[in-house]
Design a protein around this nucleic acid. Structure first.
Lengths: 199, 199
DNA sequence: GTCTATATTTCGATAGAC
DNA sequence: GTCTATCGAAATATAGAC
């Protein structure tokens, strides 16, 4: 889908995505005009159309980067059989999820702040979403009757813990080294399952 | 701030807020035009201006309802002294938070889906926000050096658990009675603090 | 590749009749 | 209280020169 395969224009393209990521996150997608992005880069609005056909496509590409990274994680979980096997696979996934959220923090914030714009985007005609939304896949996993409700609540709970501490409330823990914070989160989610399983 | 004190027009006003809540949540604030709202109510766009001076004011009023309800909870917590006393007060707050999120689920979803629109709204000149944003107050509490980091992570973690299970992933637990779900969430957050404190 | 200039559309908001 | 009609401002997107 990208436009120019030329090797130098690719830099500009990447800069556009960088600026868009920041502006979309901090002012919101709808409140950010193409003029905002262009001015920040010292070019004009029209130049953006050389790299992206539509404004939507900029957001879409940022979305897909997170989607693809997250999809790999979910594929792994969905490879297990729905039921006890999936519960057994959960602890390992939790650990990977911590790394994932630390690595993708910027894109996760973009998604968190622009949920409605993204919903409209992927729910649209144009974009062939043979690739199902991550959120929907997670909901399906958590809604499965093949897993005891208490377990499923604990699974959702760990997602909540990781998201809240590492992404949403991240501002409160700015001064804490990532590794230390990650260790505390892992400890917390481990307790969540440990105690829950024992009951 | 509301316009008409007349007793019958108040119904229409409330209906406007109901429809706006639904559309803002499902399509997003920016993607929802006043025409969308008016048509749903069988009136014209211009009629809305009899009840609200600006489109912003509709969102603002919905925002303030959640803000006021949540502010009461936070006031209570902030009444304690920063440090061990606040940690001691936390378990009780957690319990109240579960009820709060169940009661205010619709407004919480609105806020979650329109974070950027709301940030622009309250960060604006017009609205005297002597009332500080809830998020900022929470971040300050969670960032306090007077409380051990492990404790603060657990506090943030419980917020994450409650939000994720009762609001964000709520769709996965649609068929579960609220009371049962609330009980499981309370059990989970209690474990979170119980084990964490023991360490 | 980037520019200037402009077409097109949509939306928030206002004026004024009823 | 609700309507018709319209204004004015942005913003997306396009055309075409350089």
């Amino acid at each position: 889908m990208p436009r120019p395969p030329s090797s130098q224009g690719a830099e500009t393209r990447e800069k556009i995505l960088e600026v868009a990521l920041e502006l979309f996150t901090h002012q919101g997608y709808d409140a950010t005009s193409l003029r905002d992005i262009a001015e920040r880069l010292g070019i004009t609005k029209a130049a953006l159309y050389y790299y992206f056909e539509r404004k939507e496509d900029i957001l879409l590409e940022l979305h897909m980067r997170l989607h693809d990274a997250g999809s790999a994680l979910l594929d792994e979980l969905e490879a297990t059989e729905d039921g006890p096997a999936r519960v057994a696979a959960w602890p390992a996934l939790q650990d990977q999820l911590v790394d994932f959220m630390l690595e993708q923090r910027d894109l996760l914030l973009l998604h968190s702040r622009n949920q409605s714009a993204l919903a409209a985007l992927v729910g649209s005609e144009r974009n062939q979403h043979a690739n199902e939304e991550l959120e929907a896949r997670i909901v399906r996993i958590l809604g499965s009757p093949a897993i005891p409700l208490r377990q499923r609540v604990r699974m959702a709970a760990s997602i909540g813990v990781i998201t809240e501490v590492l992404v949403e409330s991240g501002e409160a823990f700015q001064d804490v080294p990532s590794e230390e914070l990650a260790a505390l989160v892992r400890e917390t989610t481990a307790d969540l399952l440990g105690v829950g399983t024992a009951r």
